[in-house]
């Protein structure tokens, strides 16, 4: 077989941790063939050595100024050109906002097949077969791509393991030229406002999530607050759930009911119209477990439910359940974890 490409996503001059899962999948599907890592953007050359340690046999890097801030146009143009020139059997990446766009655009340029969100994958006799969610995770879909020519594949984050790191490995590094010059690119990034210190839901090994029950906060709102329930829930997310998330290094999630009620911003929403997550541990606090929410978190390895209502559907999905007021249980849990984890 010809070589297999693995796309390394660079964010802020560093390879995203999930990128190494792409190298893991590439190595497995390559079945002995060469694995080539593609690294575009800021610091690409210095990431190349890390890619070798994580399983790349060779690396193609492009560090041009047009690629230092991610934009789909120059990234997809370069990816499509490299794929056309090298004709790899497969182009493997881990699905994120950026890679979904870059892969789809590059695949459209050469009319190559693209299969996304794969959590099971095989490659035999030139046929790529994946299992992926459909109807927002309520059912699964098996899809395949066959025939000659490169095939693009995006796997779900945290669904596959990276290779064992081996710092003794080295790889041939080749610098490639960008395809588009600045005046051929139709977008300009005027400004960027970073949100710092937040653990991303889709990367998180642990998620602490709050629902409608967040409004049962016993804290007393200050006088003149327009909506006491909203104040209570917001206060609860910030001062009761966030400390639990902090001690666990977890991301903060929420149900759609909590987001729609204005308890927390939309970027925290887990579920069918929010983010689809698959952490090792999902702690659902005051979440009843509506079907939309289940669709977004059912792939969590272990689910803990904390809810006052012992009939809440979330308990049917949970390995461990605590029936009780989250405003009593969560602070006790935070204190106990601090003690046990030595923080």
């Amino acid at each position: 077989m010809s070589q297999v490409f693995a796309f390394v996503e660079v964010v802020g001059g560093q390879a995203s941790a999930a990128s190494w899962e792409a190298l893991g999948v590439a190595r497995r599907l390559a079945n002995g063939a060469q694995v080539v890592a593609l690294i575009f953007g800021e610091n690409a050359a210095s990431i190349a050595q890390e890619a070798a340690a994580m399983g790349a046999d060779s690396v193609l890097v492009c560090e041009d100024a047009t690629l230092s801030v991610y934009r789909v146009e120059p990234y997809a143009a370069l990816l499509a050109k490299l794929v056309s020139d090298h004709q790899p059997a497969l182009v493997v990446g881990v699905g994120t906002g950026r890679t979904r766009e870059t892969f789809a655009s590059a695949a459209a340029e050469t009319n190559s097949p693209l299969l996304t969100e794969a959590f099971e994958v095989s490659y035999e006799d030139n046929t790529l077969t994946v299992t992926r969610p459909a109807y927002a995770g309520k059912v699964q879909q098996k899809m395949s791509a066959s025939g000659p020519g490169p095939k693009y594949l995006l796997v779900r984050g945290r669904a596959f393991k990276p290779n064992e790191r081996d710092d003794a490995r080295s790889a041939n590094v080749t610098t490639v030229a960008p395809v588009l010059s600045e005046d051929q690119i139709s977008t300009k990034v005027e400004s960027f406002e970073a949100e710092v210190g937040k653990v991303k839901l889709t990367d998180a090994a642990i998620i602490v999530s709050g629902g409608r029950g967040m409004a049962n906060n016993p804290a007393t709102p200050p006088p003149g607050v327009p909506d006491p329930a909203v104040w209570k829930a917001q206060e609860g997310f910030a001062n009761v759930l966030q400390p639990l998330a902090d001690v666990l290094g977890a991301a903060l999630g929420a149900s759609r009911a909590a987001v729609d009620a204005g308890y927390i911003s939309y970027d925290h929403q887990v579920g069918q119209t929010g983010k689809n997550v698959n952490p090792d541990l999902y702690i659902a606090c005051g979440i009843s477990g509506a079907i939309q929410h289940q669709a977004g978190m059912r792939n969590s390895k272990l689910i803990v439910a904390i809810n006052k209502d012992s009939d809440a559907p979330i308990f049917k999905m949970a390995r461990f359940g605590v029936v009780g007021d989250l405003y009593e249980i969560v602070p006790a849990l935070t204190a106990e974890l601090k003690k046990r984890l030595g923080k």
Binding site: P113, T129, Q140, K142, M143, S144, S146, G147, A318
Partner: peptide, 15 residues
């Protein structure tokens, strides 16, 4: 260039 092979119900959570 791609084909839908089959739809399946997700395995029930054995919990």
């Amino acid at each position: 260039s791609t084909q839908v092979v089959a739809f399946m119900n997700p395995p029930a959570r054995q919990v």
